[in-house]
Design a protein around this nucleic acid. Structure first.
Length: 289
DNA sequence: CTGCACGCCTGCCCGC
DNA sequence: TGCGGGCAGGCGTGCA
């Protein structure tokens, strides 16, 4: 569920908690998430200072003083939650219990910082992943090297999108979900952007006209910016660093809106829920052509 | 090479 | 009240 806006929201929340802090101890409670965790992760991270936190697509990148970068992917249900251990007044959801002093069974990794804050990685479904590699080799990492442009950067333009869609025989939805074409989108924001552009998710990508590609590119940027400003979408799992939900679900126009009236002001259609490529698509067949 | 089905994993929700 | 089945979906694998 965490797509680009959710990961960016987490990044922004982590910066005041983690930037310039030293990891004084690591509590690693499992050896694997989706894949094995980095070898000797605890030893390699202990006493390292976090020099910066950036994001590429849905990956969080922690630059460390030991010359390595920690890569974290939240998968479907991963959360990074900050917890003060002295004078804590925060309410955390589904994790550390202040009364019993016990961690949740899905608290897999806990980063203790020199500021009396701990960052808890909680992930019930364990679709998340971590890796730890030399910072110099970051661009060639297997998770990062094939990613397409960041949609909010100048590397992503309507011209780029038009040219790429022209090469695809799949549906426009499948193309926009492809991380090598554009990085960071998932089911929710692809469907929202297509609704805003009045393009059906079932249209063939190579049939998209130039003016339509422009509308899609603008819609992608608009929906991502708005979602980041709202602190992301919390449909089931997503939480911000302090445990708060995001508020963008109030702004969703089609995702999860089956059988409701289309919110397009000039449209009398009804939002449909249909299976597409083994995933759920929501769209209005009346105004999305 | 492209396009797409599948499996991973758990919690939740629905129907019986 | 209990239980089985379907669903959520990002991403790697493997197939045609």
């Amino acid at each position: 569920m965490p797509e680009l806006p959710e990961v960016e929201t987490v990044r922004q929340g982590l910066i005041p908690e983690m930037n310039e802090k030293i990891i004084v101890r690591l509590d690693q409670r499992r050896l694997d998430l989706r894949w094995p965790l980095p070898k000797n992760m605890s030893e390699r991270l202990t006493n390292s200072r976090i020099l910066g936190i950036s994001r590429r697509s849905k990956y969080l990148l922690f630059t460390l003083s030991n010359g390595e970068t920690l890569i974290i992917h939240l998968g479907m249900s991963g959360r990074l939650l900050a917890m003060k251990f002295k004078n804590d007044t925060r309410k955390l959801i589904g994790t550390f219990d202040l009364e019993t002093g016990k961690f949740d069974k899905h608290d897999h990794i806990i980063f203790f910082l020199d500021s009396d804050v701990a960052i808890i990685y909680n992930d019930p479904r364990r679709f998340g992943a971590m890796d730890l590699i030399p910072t110099l080799g970051l661009d060639n990492h297997k998770w990062l090297r094939r990613l397409g442009p960041e949609p909010l950067s100048n590397n992503f333009s309507s011209k780029y999108l038009y040219e790429k869609l022209k090469q695809r025989k799949s549906s426009v939805k499948a193309a926009l979900m492809d991380q090598t074409l554009i990085a960071g989108l998932g089911n929710i924001y692809v469907l929202e952007a297509l609704w805003l552009s009045k393009i059906s998710p079932f249209r063939r990508a190579d049939d998209i006209k130039k003016i339509e590609a422009e509308a899609i590119a603008i819609s992608i940027k608009n929906v991502l910016v708005a979602a980041i400003e709202a602190g992301g979408t919390s449909l089931q799992d997503f939480r911000q660093v302090g445990g708060e939900i995001g508020y963008f679900q109030r702004c969703l126009n089609v995702y999860g809106c089956s059988d409701t009236k289309c919110k397009n002001i000039r449209c009398s259609g009804t939002i449909q829920r249909v299976k597409q490529l083994g995933r759920t698509s929501y769209f209005c067949s009346n105004c999305q052509k």
